[in-house]
């Protein structure tokens, strides 16, 4: 596998969001990190691009993303007061989409901050 080097990568493991990390990767795994602390290093080394989990599950059974998206949409559509919760380990772009979805389904949107 070809080794790629990503300079000035950003670590999102803690609120420091260090943006000076160097990452070496072989296409499926990150093999080495520079400048990251112990927490950041284990965060980067522990994630791979392998397919370790099924694409989607419905009631515990494997399903396609299309089916799961339809099922999710149906549940949220039918609910009187759906709740959209979390938003911590996702990008700002995904957070913005989540707020839009909460508005469309007439629900509550909330994050870790409320705990």
């Amino acid at each position: 596998m070809e080794l790629t080097v990503t300079k000035d990568a950003t670590c999102t493991f803690c609120g420091c969001v260090c943006d000076d990390i160097e990452l070496h990767s072989d296409g499926t795994k990150i093999t080495n990190t520079k400048a990251a602390c112990v927490l950041g290093k284990s965060w980067f080394l522990n994630h791979t691009a392998e397919r370790l989990y099924p694409d989607a599950l419905i009631d515990g059974k494997e399903a396609t993303v299309d089916e799961a998206v339809e099922a999710a949409a149906e549940y949220l559509y039918l609910a009187h007061l759906p709740l959209v919760y979390g938003l911590s380990n996702i990008t700002c772009e995904a957070q913005r989409e989540s707020v839009a979805l909460a508005e469309l389904i007439g629900g509550v949107v909330d994050s870790h901050t409320s705990l």
Binding site: S88, N89, Q95, V99, S114
Partner: peptide, 28 residues
């Protein structure tokens, strides 16, 4: 602030809804 993008969550909810968390949009 701790894990991941919690700060982003506050900021995004603030600019989209005016409040940082726990926002109810049921009435539109």
């Amino acid at each position: 602030r701790g894990h991941g993008n919690v700060t982003g969550g506050d900021v995004i909810m603030r600019w989209t809804t005016g409040y940082p968390f726990g926002v109810n949009l049921a009435r539109g």
